[in-house]
Simulated assay, not measured.
Amino acid sequence: MERTHHLPDIRTLSPKELSQVVSELGQPAFRAKQLNEWLFEKNVCSFEEMTNLPKAFREQLAEHFFFAVPTEVVKQVSKDGSRKYLLQFPDGVAVETVGMPSRNRLAVCISTQAGCNMGCAFCATGLAGLTRSLTAQEMVDQVVHVSRDLGERVTSVVFMGQGEPFANFNETVRALRMLNSEHGLNIGARHLTVSTCGIIPNIRAFADLPEQFTLAVSLHSAIQSTRNQLMPGVKKYTLVRLHEALQLYTEKTGRRPTYEFAMIEGINDTNPEMNALCDFCEGTLCHVNLIQLNDIPDSPFKPSPMKKVEELQRRLQMRGVETTIRNSRGSDIDAACGQLKQRKINVHLS
Rank of each mutant, 00 (worst) to 15 (best):
M1C: 08
T4F: 07
P8F: 09
P15F: 09
L18S: 02
L18C: 05
S23K: 14
L25N: 05
Q27L: 14
K33M: 01
E37S: 10
W38R: 05
E41Q: 15
F47A: 01
E48P: 01
T51D: 12
P54L: 02
F57P: 01
R58K: 14
A62N: 12
E63A: 09
F66H: 11
V69K: 01
V77D: 12
V77R: 11
D80G: 11
D80C: 12
G81D: 06
L87E: 03
G92N: 09
V95P: 00
V95A: 09
V98S: 07
V98I: 11
R105W: 05
C109D: 06
N117A: 12
A121T: 08
L127H: 11
L130A: 08
L150C: 04
F159M: 13
M160N: 03
N168V: 13
L179H: 03
N180Q: 07
I200Q: 11
I200R: 09
P201R: 10
N202C: 00
R204C: 02
A205I: 00
F206L: 09
P210I: 02
E211P: 06
A216W: 07
S221V: 11
Q224H: 04
Q229S: 11
K236G: 02
L239V: 00
V240R: 15
A245I: 10
M263C: 06
I264L: 14
E273S: 13
E282K: 15
E282I: 04
I291C: 08
I291R: 03
P297W: 01
P300T: 02
L316W: 11
T323Q: 10
G330H: 04
D332K: 08
I345F: 00
L349Q: 13
